[in-house]
Design a protein around this nucleic acid. Structure first.
Lengths: 201, 201
DNA sequence: ATATAGATGTTTACACTGTAAACATGAGAG
DNA sequence: CTCTCATGTTTACAGTGTAAACATCTATAT
């Protein structure tokens, strides 16, 4: 319990952690560097030793949340090694439910700093790098969709198509634009299944 | 050319118009009440005679953009009275292209003030009111999807499913998470068509 | 026609924000 | 053991949203 050290020790890490807390408590609007500095028991200028500006702190938090998100999803997948279809379905439903449970995360990840991603170019379609949360399902989607096409790259459009739907449904649910009464994941799951079914026939 | 009237005349309206300009120029982050007041040649406190706070101005701008958006879409539809399928397809592609052309609008409409909507309750699914931009395609979707179901309300899930996909693809394109080289609307259109086709069989 | 009230503008004030600059402290390399 | 540098603090400043007090115009009642 290092009480009142002048040097904090691992401020950078703590700011990211407490930053996520602050984000959850105050939302994106109420977020401020000075509040966060106070939460870390540190003067309001201290953050500038670790982040050049607010934007860079945002990026760090963004990255941290993305990582948490991806880890949570991948962990769930490990429990369903059966077939690609089940994996894909599980991935989609957890993608949605994770974000519905943490509404601010979604806005945060997909609304700050939409640059700085390594891009993977595939002829005429460019996806972000494999570490980008959008791409979590890519490999599972490939495995599932490939067999429906003779064309090697057509599965990418299938993947984008599926992921657009997940992504959009998530946005609609997170913003409460649409609401399912009762168990909303029941409806989400049904939608995804019926989408996947359309390939089976 | 009323040059220097003390009373401005129609400040409320001008603030909304210039507000949209300012939004396009500076983006959501750079937006400020005081800049906007300056653009209207008015002191920085004048806005408070017309809007209780910044949030309420946001809502007004949000509403104005939503209206523009809906008008643009409906105008396009009028030119395609042929069949519901074509209408739906046109609606979807224009939904996307309008937002890709005005990236800030999308973030703005779907990221501010996600309350204050009249809700239409349908048993266990709640959609926003008919004036909400999300619902522009609802009636066309109903007309198109209804014939594929014996169940009266199953088309709503179809609608949500389709609109989720449009919505998500728009978000991905607006944020430049994914990029289609060349004519990106070509790809978008293909995706929508292949989705609609899955119902025809 | 004129006094007056209410709508709409301005000025001043304040707390809070991000950020820069100058200064302080302490941990680790020489 | 000292000196340097990473990491903290203090002070300062311009920009923000918002409230309160004051000014001016418009419209309405007499």
């Amino acid at each position: 319990m290092a009480e009142k050290l002048y040097h904090h020790g691992d401020l950078k890490k703590e700011m990211i952690q407490k930053g996520i807390q602050l984000l959850n408590k105050e939302g994106y609007e109420g977020f401020s560097l000075r509040k966060l500095a106070a939460m870390c028991n540190v003067s309001h200028a201290a953050p500038y030793r670790h982040f050049e500006n607010k934007q860079e702190l945002y990026r760090a938090i963004n990255l941290e949340i993305s990582t948490k998100f991806r880890d949570a999803l991948l962990e769930d997948i490990d429990r369903h090694r059966d077939d690609p279809r089940t994996q894909l379905l599980e991935l989609c439903t957890h993608y949605i439910s994770f974000m519905v449970d943490n509404p601010d995360y979604f806005r945060y990840i997909f609304l700050t700093s939409h640059d700085s991603q390594i891009e993977i170019s595939n002829e005429d379609i460019r996806l972000p790098g494999d570490d980008h949360p959008f791409n979590i399902g890519k490999n599972y989607a490939k495995e599932y969709f490939c067999r429906f096409h003779e064309n090697e790259t057509a599965w990418i459009l299938d993947f984008i198509s599926l992921w657009s739907q997940i992504h959009g449904l998530t946005l609609l649910l997170v913003n409460r634009t649409i609401r399912f009464q009762g168990d909303h994941m029941e409806y989400a799951r049904r939608m995804i299944e019926s989408y996947l079914n359309s390939f089976e026939n």
